[in-house]
């Protein structure tokens, strides 16, 4: 490119190409001027003009990266929390189930114990009632014997209070009890 242009230029020097004439010396000048300008601008002008913008861009990029990082972090922690929550839910469920089971067992135990106690109490009461009744019966019987004897001795006016007579009456009463 450069070579062909230079060739064109040198061949057309004084060749009457008019506005299309290319002066290679001018190309050297252009490079000299532009490269100097470029270096000066790069050193003294562009950084001063762009520094604020570049700093802002860098800040924004950093913030975006930070936001992305935080977002990822939040996502992982959310996942973790979800997992944790699921775990704790399960745990709670098992705890509740355990408690329920325990409560059921306890209730059953208490119920059975209460029933047992009740039965025991009933038994005891029945036994006591029986015993009481027996005692009352014997007492009644004794009193009845005494009364009968007293009445009989009054009636007979005899010495009927000997043991044979007492036994006779008792036997009689017994036979009455058996009849009933």
């Amino acid at each position: 490119m450069l070579f062909s242009l230079v060739m064109l230029a040198t061949s057309s020097e004084e060749g009457g190409l008019g506005p299309f004439a290319v002066n290679p010396g001018l190309m050297i000048w252009t490079w000299l001027v532009f490269i100097t300008l470029f270096l000066l601008l790069r050193r003294f002008a562009w950084p001063a003009i762009l520094s604020a913008t570049e700093a802002r861009e860098k800040k924004i990029a950093d913030q975006l990266a930070e936001a992305e990082r935080l977002n990822a972090e939040a996502a992982t922690s959310l996942e973790e929390h979800k997992k944790l929550l699921a775990g704790s839910k399960e745990e709670a469920q098992t705890l509740i189930a355990d408690a329920k089971q325990l409560a059921d067992k306890e209730r059953d135990q208490i119920l059975s114990r209460a029933r047992e106690e009740q039965e025991q109490m009933l038994d005891r009461a029945k036994r006591e009632i029986d015993a009481e009744r027996d005692r009352a019966l014997t007492e009644l019987r004794k009193v009845a014997v005494e009364l009968s004897l007293a009445a009989a001795s009054k009636l007979v006016e005899q010495n009927l209070d000997d043991d044979s007579n007492r036994k006779f009456v008792a036997d009689y009463l017994d036979s009455l009890g058996e009849r009933n």
Partner: peptide, 10 residues
Amino acid sequence: LAITAALAIL
């Protein structure tokens, strides 16, 4: 043209 060519070469 010489100047634009020089810039284009850059």
